[in-house]
Write a protein that binds this DNA or RNA. Structure first.
Length: 843
RNA sequence: GCCCCAGUAGCCCAAUUGGCAGAGGCAGCGGACUUAAAAUCCGCGUGUUGCGAGUUCGAGUCUCGCCUGGGGCACCA
């Protein structure tokens, strides 16, 4: 489907059919060059240390059908970087692989009564062929699929290392449950209370699940972002920071007094406002936490039960609504404020979250809006302890949270808020009832999935030995091959449980009958270390070759969509840090630089089936050619901005490519012709372009590089067509055309290769090397200096670039236009910025 | 509610980081070539740099406050 109405005739010049002799034909080039590149192994790194190494990585694709427009953009960007660094003389590792475990394969298998691997590997083949057509400069010999046993063997091996370090553990806990997909979801996969995948409202369910203890790395994941600043997009760092959610405050211990036959109990709360302890007027525990049941007196137990049922019936969407009225029940218990001994009623409510902080809070209604809403609903007392100058919360209904001075707070009275916080913590620490504490929003990573098409968890459950890891030499624990179709449909437990022959094994420890763990790992586990596997994908003694890993890691430039700003990147960072701590790699951050390419939109909206605004990549490639599509992606906007396919012109790109290609046709000088006598003006443009392009590529301004290249093509055309001069025989024209070919090879590999061939050079232009610019040719003979009076341009003078400040000042003051503008006024100051500008300020 | 990013010509976007607002492209208009058209080649750019203040000799660029759009987090104590 064509998005933009293109007339048939409008594309005639690039049409694939029956090209005229000597005409630009993308189809002919696409047929000719891939085999040449493959034979020359152009994109396989030499990996022998003779050249400095650089690792350029695109986020590997999930094999859902064929490549789409989004892939076309992302991989065009990554390929520019890889091809540029290769031209610059680096040994570039630019691998490709597939994130090939995942739910869609399973759904397809159920639908077609097949094994998920059939759909998966068929799609991989399709995508691989498309990538080759798209001419990404990947080293195909390093191809990796996460669903290959040779790969997931090492995912399991790494899981075991995490397990041994106490970083992988099981616990019973309420988990996010998607009733439709019949599977557990990580917090990250719950979007606005609904399943990220199918949109079904998520409910809670208690299950025994595997977790990675990512919270143990919260501090480092946060602190080490400092070394990424400036090389990662600011918004990604901001998102990760928010997600980790570090907040400083205190743990405060409250004693819940014995009551109604229940014994006294210590309960700790987390607060960021220990300065407001005197303002606590009640105490709240999360209604759905075990502590609520433990505390409630017999008298109030029935009330709590009913309330808990009511809470459980709510979906996450309902529960998270901030407009909802506060609800809760009294537990019959009282907590003692450690600072003033006051007795506070203990309530259970659902506005306190069981899995944040300690699941219990001290409520300070005067200075916290949620507490105030609750106090208003249940007619609980409100006591201001901070004079902020704002209106009394009991009157305004608005809790005050600004700066101010402590009141009604015993010995803290009179202190400003900033001093009262440490003072309160000091008192608590002194009396042993609390301490400074840093709390994180980040939770442990729930990695179990009740799914088939994933990496099996390499644990055996033995009735006598408990959890027993599968010995390393027995890895991989392979997925059973005999489950297919309906066997895989969701039943609330993992489909693997149905494979009895697979499940029932001998305990590696006591050799008694035991059962395999039937969960598989979240596919984010697979993608948390694939970049390490690419370094030595055939290595059989470990996940990667220790002799190679530090030569390539960290990844110098990672390219991918912002949709992975939190999950994948945080997990990959976590894995890298753990593997670093295992002493296996030097790097403790995986990706030194990150580039988030924008999305490809159509008509201002993301392409989607429901909107019917999808653009088919292969149709675009058929119509305009690979190079034109790639160039359009690059030229449309800065890499990180969205590209609206309705706003851009692939036919315009095709036109430019043909124009560039014709330059090579018009060159009549021989390769290696002495260029020193060539047209100086054109040479100047050529060398300026080389210098500018390098600077622009270093800062990822790929769209501007294309604009500069267009200027060079225009200048070259003009020189060829000029009535005076040597035209196509001028060696400066050859120099320009060769420069165009080399720079163009980053964006349009087919056209560039063909130009290079026409210019009489052997393949491949990808190895031509970045041209060296001649500084002498960048120096302009004269520059235009602007003369301003009071900031307004009044004159221009042609001066030598080396002109001195004094000389330029004299020239400017001598100008008639300046004198007229001054109109007899005296001069206060003259600002001279030689050789470009003079600004005269009248008195 | 909190945080991040963006806003320049009809459209996509440049602007050497504080120095002439315009590089490149799309669209449009005109010319050359052609019997004609296409292709090709050449030519044509005044606009509240979202708005308002401030700093400065000088602001698209820096500061503050708003507006609009996009994104992230959100009953997180």
């Amino acid at each position: 489907m064509s998005v933009q109405p293109e007339t048939e005739t409008g594309t005639a010049a690039v049409a694939a059919e029956t090209p005229e002799e000597g005409a630009y034909s993308f189809a002919a080039m696409e047929a000719k060059w891939p085999q040449v590149w493959e034979d020359l192994k152009v994109f396989t790194p030499v990996d022998d240390g003779s050249r400095e190494r650089r690792y350029v990585l695109d986020m590997f694709p999930y094999p859902s059908g064929d490549l789409h427009m989004g892939h076309a953009e992302a991989f065009a960007m990554g390929d520019v970087v890889a091809r540029y660094l290769r031209q610059k003389g680096f040994d570039v590792l630019h691998p490709i692989g597939w994130d090939s475990f995942g739910l869609p394969a399973e759904n397809a298998a159920i639908k077609r009564n097949a094994h998920p691997s059939e759909w998966t590997y068929a799609n991989i083949d399709t995508q691989a062929a498309s990538f080759k057509r798209y001419a990404i400069s990947a080293d195909w010999s390093r191809r990796v699929h996460t669903s290959d046993p040779e790969y997931y063997r090492w995912t399991q091996w790494l899981f075991k290392r995490f397990y041994e370090r106490g970083l992988a553990y099981r616990k019973d806990s309420p988990v996010n449950w998607c009733p439709k997909d019949q599977t557990v979801l990580a917090n990250e996969q719950v979007v606005n209370g609904a399943c990220e995948r199918c949109g079904t409202p998520v409910t809670k369910k208690s299950l025994n699940q595997w977790y990675f203890k990512i919270t143990e790395y919260a501090d480092r994941l946060l602190d080490d972002m400092d070394e990424l600043r400036g090389h990662w997009p600011e918004r990604v760092l901001a998102m990760q920071k928010n997600w980790i959610g570090r907040s400083e405050g205190a743990h405060v211990n409250f004693v819940i007094e014995a009551e109604g036959g229940k014994p006294a109990k210590d309960v700790t709360v987390f607060t960021t406002r220990p300065d407001t302890l005197y303002g606590a007027t009640f105490f709240v525990v999360a209604a759905d936490a075990p502590i609520a049941v433990e505390l409630v007196t017999e008298e109030h137990a029935a009330g709590l039960d009913a309330y808990r049922e009511q809470v459980k019936a709510l979906t996450e969407i309902e529960r998270q609504s901030t407009e909802r009225e506060k609800t809760g029940v009294f537990t019959g218990r009282y907590a003692v404020n450690p600072l003033n001994g006051e007795k506070l009623p203990v309530w259970a409510a659902d506005y306190v979250l069981a899995d944040y902080g300690t699941g219990a809070i001290m409520a300070v209604p005067a200075h916290d809006q949620r507490d105030l809403d609750f106090a208003t609903t249940f007619d609980l007392p409100v006591r201001a302890v901070l004079d902020t100058g704002e209106e009394d919360p009991t009157v305004s209904g608005k809790a005050t949270s600004g700066e101010g001075t402590l009141i009604n707070s015993g010995i803290l009275d009179g202190l400003p808020k900033a001093e009262a916080i440490p003072a309160a913590i000091g008192i608590l620490e002194e009396q042993g009832t609390g301490e400074k504490f840093v709390n994180f929003r980040l939770r442990d990573w729930l990695l179990s999935r009740q799914r088939f098409w994933g990496t099996p968890i390499p644990i055996i459950h033995c009735p006598s030995c408990g959890e027993v890891p599968v010995p390393d030499e027995q890895l991989p624990v392979r997925l059973p091959a005999d489950l297919r179709g309906e066997d895989l449909s969701p039943k609330g437990t993992s489909p693997l449980a149905a494979a009895e022959a697979w499940v029932n094994v001998d305990c590696p420890n006591c050799h008694g009958p035991a059962k395999r763990d039937t969960d598989t790992m979240d596919t984010f586990v697979d993608s948390s270390w694939y970049f390490l596997r690419f370094v030595s994908p055939q290595y059989t003694e470990g996940p990667f070759d220790p002799a190679k890993i530090n030569e390539w890691m960290p990844v110098g430039q990672y390219v991918g969509g912002v949709e992975h700003a939190i999950l994948h990147l945080l997990y990959a960072r976590f894995f890298t840090k753990v593997i670093h701590d295992l002493g296996m790699i030097d790097a403790d951050e995986p990706f030194s630089a990150l580039l988030n390419q924008g999305q490809v939109l159509n008509g201002g909206k993301a392409m989607s089936k429901s909107l019917g605004n999808g653009v088919d990549l292969s149709e675009q490639l058929d119509k305009y050619g690979v190079d034109a599509v790639r160039l359009t992606m690059i030229f449309a906007s800065p890499p990180e901005d969205d590209v609206d396919w309705a706003d851009v012109s692939p036919s315009g790109s095709a036109k430019f490519l043909a124009r560039a290609w014709r330059l090579a046709q018009d060159v009549t000088s021989e390769p290696g012709a002495d260029v020193s006598a060539g047209d100086r003006a054109l040479r100047s443009v050529t060398h300026r372009t080389i210098a500018d392009a390098a600077a622009l590529l270093d800062t990822n301004k790929f769209n501007v590089v294309v604009a500069k290249l267009m200027e060079l093509v225009n200048a070259t055309r003009k020189t060829i067509d000029a009535a005076a001069g040597a035209g196509g025989a001028d060696p400066a024209v050859r120099e320009a055309a060769e420069t165009v070919a080399v720079i163009l090879s980053l964006f349009a590999p087919y056209t560039a290769e063909d130009m290079w061939n026409v210019l009489g050079h052997p393949a491949s232009v990808a190895n031509a090397g970045w041209p060296v610019h001649d500084e002498a040719l960048l120096v302009q003979e004269t520059v235009t200096a602007v003369v301003q009076v009071q900031g307004k341009v009044r004159d221009r003078v042609e001066v030598s670039p080396g002109i001195g400040e004094d000389e330029l000042r004299e020239l400017a003051l001598a100008s008639e236009n300046v004198q007229r503008a001054l109109d007899g006024r005296g001069i206060r100051t003259v600002i001279v910025r030689a050789p470009k500008l003079v600004n005269i300020v009248p008195a």
